[in-house]
Simulated scan of single mutants.
Amino acid sequence: MADFHDDLRLAHVLADQADATTMARFKALDLKVETKPDMTPVSEADKAAEELIRTALRRSRPRDAVMGEEYGLEGVGPRRWVVDPIDGTKNYVRGVPVWATLIALMTPGEQGYEPVVGVVSAPALSRRWWAVKGGGAYTGRSLSQATRLRVSSVNTIADASFAYSSLKGWDDRGRLDSFLHLSRDCWRTRAYGDFWPYMMVAEGTVDVCAEPELSLWDMAANAIVVEEAGGRFTGLDGRRGPHSGNAAASNGLLHEQLLDYLGD
């Protein structure tokens, strides 16, 4: 198996630089925010963080391709970095601290491109999570000060904590009844939103989570952290990985039950 620890260390350096950029503009009264064609917001900090990461990767990994939310795909190499400069931009622009920079490295695998490194950095929460293929998932202040992540052992939906982002997405896709059915059958539901439910699944503080519409950059880093913590990450169609345009994540024990409620 290839060793990706040098890439993991680089991803941490990239996350450190992005954190400095995003935190410098967080809650700034003169923050510039635009509306993209899909009617979602983008701030000057989103653009600056992605530009910074791309510039660093051109210098340190010139043969690798880079895909980012704000500037698309650049390069054609077999290794592909996938970046969401601020996952949770709506929170960011309103001063809510639940947002993160997501950085993943993907390489060709048995099912197409698969994430082999993932870093999720939430500086306003003073939290960071990361994983490398075959090396486990961790959280902490640095590589040397880290705690290994493990998913929960809850094995019934009636005892499960279910996290999500919003009701509207499920309603827009005609799946609200199924969503509410699951919510009623669970022990607890909370709308933490964006990257955070996936990190909670990896930590074992949440047992299942799902979202009906996502992009690759929303999922790549989250997927490897969940899997390396012992959980499962698929689309609502049950296909492993971050390629289905939506997501279902669990501690593994509850995954088929989760898909019974919300799966395609």
Rank of each mutant, 00 (worst) to 15 (best):
Y71E: 08
V132D: 15
M200Y: 08
G112N: 04
G245P: 11
I103Y: 05
V98K: 12
T107F: 05
L52D: 14
G95I: 08
V226N: 00
D38V: 01
L259F: 02
V119L: 02
R175F: 12
V42S: 05
W129R: 03
P123E: 02
T156D: 10
P115N: 01
I53K: 12
D64A: 13
R190L: 09
A48P: 07
Q17R: 14
V83I: 03
I53R: 10
D64N: 10
L180R: 09
C209K: 05
W130G: 09
R184I: 05
L214M: 08
P97N: 05
A210E: 01
E227H: 01
P37F: 00
E51I: 15
K32I: 07
G136S: 05
W81A: 01
A65K: 04
Y164I: 07
R128F: 12
D207P: 04
R94E: 08
A48E: 11
G140V: 07
T205E: 09
T101F: 05
E228W: 00
G95T: 10
L262W: 05
A248N: 12
S121F: 10
S144Q: 10
G88H: 03
A100Y: 03
G169P: 14
M1W: 11
A24M: 10
F233R: 01
A131C: 09
W187E: 06
R239D: 14
R59Q: 15
V206E: 08
